[in-house]
């Protein structure tokens, strides 16, 4: 078995994969990739020109959600991280996987602009990111009021994994956590998942 992650330490999409690998206790090699356009070699692995990219022997995958879902399906024999055999849990998990890739893109773009570009992120992209966090907050508020602790089901899943980075890193784009008490509780709980690791922008202390 040989898993290789083409990884940028500051990229929130790569962090999704690092969290999934850690939660599954999977041995892997990380190839550091700098910020900026990908080399032609890496572009051949992912024509979209984005990270993360994962190689599992001959199989090449890209996109944080796809990679995390794949790892959960292949390497979790108990199917806890991606409960795909139960159609209800599967459907609910899919909602948040696509949410992570689509709705939270605004948060990802806002953060990248705030960190690496001269111009601050536009009010519009910040508003879109806040709207997405509000959807998550309302969901986790309803979950709390009905005894739920995670986005889907009774235990952490790949849904929590792909949603955590954007929220935990929102301060990089100037979006504070004070408007999201239910997400704050969830994020604190997330940090207790065995194998949890931080990245730059997320404090070790809490």
């Amino acid at each position: 078995m040989s898993i290789v992650l083409y990884d940028n330490e500051l990229d929130d999409g790569c962090y999704k994969v690092r969290l999934m690998l850690a939660a599954l206790h999977l041995e892997h090699t990380r190839v550091p990739v700098g910020t900026g356009p990908l080399t032609p070699q890496l572009r051949r692995l992912n024509p979209r020109g984005t990270l993360p990219i994962l190689a599992d022997n001959d199989l090449i995958l890209h996109g944080g959600e796809a990679i995390a879902a794949f790892l959960a399906r292949r390497y979790d024999p108990l199917d806890r991280w991606f409960p795909a055999d139960d159609p209800v849990l599967f459907g609910q998990t899919m909602i948040w996987l696509s949410f992570g890739a689509e709705a939270l893109r605004s948060a990802s773009v806002a953060r990248r602009q705030a960190m690496f570009e001269v111009e601050a992120p536009s009010a519009r992209i910040i508003a879109a990111a806040r709207t997405s966090f509000r959807v998550m907050e309302d969901h986790m508020t309803a979950r709390r009021l009905t005894g739920g602790r995670w986005f889907v089901g009774e235990r952490p899943t790949v849904a929590d994994i792909v949603l955590f980075p954007a929220f935990a890193l929102s301060g990089d784009a100037g979006i504070e956590h004070d408007a999201y008490p239910a997400l704050r509780h969830w994020a604190r709980r997330f940090r207790t998942i065995p194998g949890f690791r931080t990245m730059p922008g997320i404090p070790d202390y809490y």
Partner: peptide, 15 residues
């Protein structure tokens, strides 16, 4: 804050 939202041993910023 709601009293239940500030756990012992935690801090939260607001305005």
């Amino acid at each position: 804050a709601l009293a239940a939202d500030i756990d012992p041993g935690t801090a939260n910023g607001t305005r």
